[in-house]
Design a protein around this nucleic acid. Structure first.
Length: 200
DNA sequence: CACGCGATTCGCT
DNA sequence: GCGAATCGCGTGT
């Protein structure tokens, strides 16, 4: 039975108005979608990390509000995209614990638009490294600074997160990756056994 | 206004 | 496994 495109089942804004680690865990299995003039590409979220505020030294929001991180303080359900290492973009979904908070999406399982993603990444569709990292998935989906602030809960948004169609299954909790402070905190979540999870 | 460094990736060894 | 690439943000002068 076909479903109309008009009935896109996005996660409502209230989904994001909860503690960041809850949002991070429950985003597993959901589908990150990006529509551009080049076409639609989407993937199932299989790995996330939670970043909060003053209690989390590794968070961009740890030392208060700045022109870069202000969305973390006031925009639950919106995209927070930042540029890192002079080369890569990272995609986050803003949450709302007590503000601030955001969930870094670290890996996807490609679902649609494989050809487009492969072209953007400069590799074959079958390459397992297509979306198994924060910068990689941003490049594959064509997510850039221009998408900062996108309303992920809006069915009409070109960048959005839809409800997953399959249960994520067992979830593994571990330490976060690529940071030098607060690395002991159990704020990384991934779907057990997924071949698309970032390395380590 | 100058400087240091990061929620990364890729290529080479 | 290691290090370069590359640049904007945040902090301090």
């Amino acid at each position: 039975m076909l479903r109309s495109r008009a009935l896109i089942d996005v996660l409502a804004v209230d989904f994001y108005r909860r503690p960041t680690e809850v949002v991070a865990r429950e985003l597993l299995g959901a589908v990150l979608v990006h529509e551009t003039d080049e076409g639609l590409a989407c993937g199932r979220i299989v790995e996330t990390e939670a970043y909060t505020g003053a209690d989390d030294p590794a968070s961009h929001a740890a030392r208060g509000r700045t022109p870069r991180n202000f969305l973390m303080f006031e925009a639950p359900g919106q995209a927070y995209v930042y540029f890192i290492y002079g080369n890569h973009f990272c995609f986050n979904a803003v949450s709302f614990d007590h503000p601030p908070g955001a969930v870094l999406v670290r890996a996807l399982e490609p679902l649609r638009g494989l050809d487009l993603m492969a072209r953007r990444r400069g590799m074959r569709e079958s390459d397992p490294r297509l979306t198994n990292g924060p910068g990689k998935l941003a490049q594959a989906l064509g997510v850039t600074r221009a998408d900062n602030g996108a309303a992920l809960y809006d069915p009409a948004s070109r960048l959005r997160i839809e409800r997953g169609t399959t249960a994520p299954g067992p979830i593994v909790v571990s330490e976060r990756i690529g940071i030098n402070v607060a690395r002991h905190l159990p704020l990384r979540f991934h779907i057990a056994g997924s071949p698309c999870v970032s390395k380590r």
